[in-house]
Amino acid sequence: MSTGAKKRIMKEYGECMADTPPGMKINFDEQNMTEWEVLMDGPDGSSYAGGHFKLKITFPNEYPFKPPVVSFKTKIYHPNVSNDDKGSMCLGLLRPDEWKPPNKVVAVLRLIHNLLVEPNPDDSIEPSIANEYKENRKEFDKNAKDWVKRYAK
């Protein structure tokens, strides 16, 4: 990774600290600054309220020319988070073809926050969950809360 990229990540970390999205905490390791650990509270009023989620943000070597990779380490019942050990989230500005260098991590964090408040079933990674979100919101809420209780306490 180029020094320019490292410099930028440092700057972005500073920016995130100055303007952290609500309910988020970033664990930053200067020795390994390409992997951020983000602790995030489920947004109030959402199906994930009361949950505590651990995320990892990994910066590729080509950053900022390639997007950071977001993965949920805590299992979450969400149409946009893959239901496997990866817990990947890949939509919007995180998509490789949507990403552009001026995008910032703080925008990524906001995107994650917004997606927990309002999932995007039309760009889902888990079609069955997305379908349930669209067709049977009650059942979706129940499942999401159930998972919060089981995995995110």
Binding site: T58, V69, N83, S88, I125, P127
Partner: peptide
């Protein structure tokens, strides 16, 4: 196989 760098649906 699924790939963390290229997240794919289930």
């Amino acid at each position: 196989p699924r790939d963390a760098n290229h997240a794919g649906p289930q």
